[in-house]
């Protein structure tokens, strides 16, 4: 059994807390404890309550407190629950993302906003099943945004985020364990680097987080139908420059870009990726799959119809390749 995403992230933080004796985690109710086989991690037990502190239901404290301590050199991680993704938005927008620039480079916020994100799960409805809000953070200047799709990337990206001298928003979607095994020792997945998950020549498919599972299924089905798809996981949404190098290289080869997103159709992250490809490569065929511009309904009949499935990806790709 491979390590879960939660275990991999806590393993990353544990290693960094051992390395940096000041690194501090503020959180609400999501205990920083996990088990894998007969191994357990419990950050509060290991490092004490001052360095792993739960709080009242108060995201402004968790994020604002982490920003304040990071300003005096105490690196901090602010862990907020999934239904509160945008509550600390003002702090990240007008403070975290701007202060370095406004002070001519004097101020720094070496902090991580570790945001739990929601899937498009049935029965939750409205406020507990939305997705795609990472695009709100990715459009803010001065912030880096990473979004791992498997435990291996989660651990490596969390370590990069902690060591970064700028504020990083680390988005954790509920994704089951997949991908390469997670080594015990610390390692880096660099911020800003996409990964080609499957090589192909007929069409480029881009997606991240929960959509990587649907895309992986679709790529297999397309292969059986004689279509060779290249699947790219951006992993970082801001800054996007290096990510685009990988995607543009692929689209120059295939001439077709299909994106798949759990976020809403308008202003989803893939919209930005499509725009950048359109600027860089002439004559490309595009298709954007995303959740409709609607809140998520609770009933499974409705939400399952609305979210992007492997079948939707296969159908769109076939249409693009075969016309």
């Amino acid at each position: 059994m491979s390590k879960s995403m939660s275990y991999a992230i806590l393993e990353a933080i544990q290693g960094e807390m051992r390395r940096d004796k000041l690194l501090t985690l503020l959180y609400e109710y999501q205990q920083p404890a996990a088990r894998w086989g007969n191994r357990t991690i419990n950050l509060e037990k290991e490092f004490g309550r001052w360095r792993a502190r739960f709080s009242a239901i108060d995201e402004n404290w968790i994020v604002g407190g982490a920003l304040g301590m990071s300003m005096i050199g105490v690196r901090a991680i602010a862990h907020i629950p999934s239904m509160t993704t945008l509550i600390p938005y003002e702090l990240m927008f007008n403070h975290a993302g701007k202060l370095r620039h406004m002070t001519g480079g004097q101020a720094a916020f070496p902090m991580v906003l570790w945001a739990d994100m929601q899937g498009r799960s049935p029965f939750q409805a409205g406020q507990h099943a939305d997705a795609g809000l990472e695009s709100c953070y990715a459009r803010l200047a001065g912030l880096k945004v990473v979004i791992p799709s498997n435990p291996y990337d989660a651990k490596g990206l969390m370590i990069s985020a902690i060591r970064d001298v700028d504020p990083v928003v680390f988005c954790q979607y509920p994704v089951p364990a997949s991908g390469p095994d997670v080594p015990d020792e610390p390692y880096i997945v660099p911020i800003g680097q996409a990964v080609v998950r499957t090589q192909g020549k007929d069409i480029t498919i881009v997606g991240y987080a929960r959509q990587t599972l649907e895309i992986a299924k679709a790529v297999e089905q397309l292969k059986q139908r004689g279509i060779s798809a290249e699947f790219i996981d951006p992993r970082t949404l801001a800054p996007l420059e290096q990510v685009m190098v990988t995607i543009i290289k692929s689209v120059k080869k295939t001439g077709k870009l299909l994106t798949s997103d759990d976020g809403s159709y308008s202003f989803c992250n893939c919209t930005e990726i499509i725009a950048r490809v359109a600027e860089a490569v002439p004559g490309v065929t595009f298709k954007r799959l995303a959740f409709p511009d609607a809140p998520p309904p609770g009933a499974p009949e409705m939400i399952n119809y609305m979210r992007v499935s492997a079948a939707d990806i296969v159908a769109a790709a076939e249409k693009m390749v075969r016309g």
Binding site: A290, P292, A294, E301, M306, V308
Partner: peptide, 22 residues
């Protein structure tokens, strides 16, 4: 009865339904 799948596209605004875009 359970809702119809396409009902999820309604009630976003007072009138009409939003497109599925698939």
């Amino acid at each position: 009865p359970v809702p119809k799948p396409e009902d999820g596209l309604s009630n976003v605004f007072a009138e009409g339904a939003v497109p599925l875009h698939k």
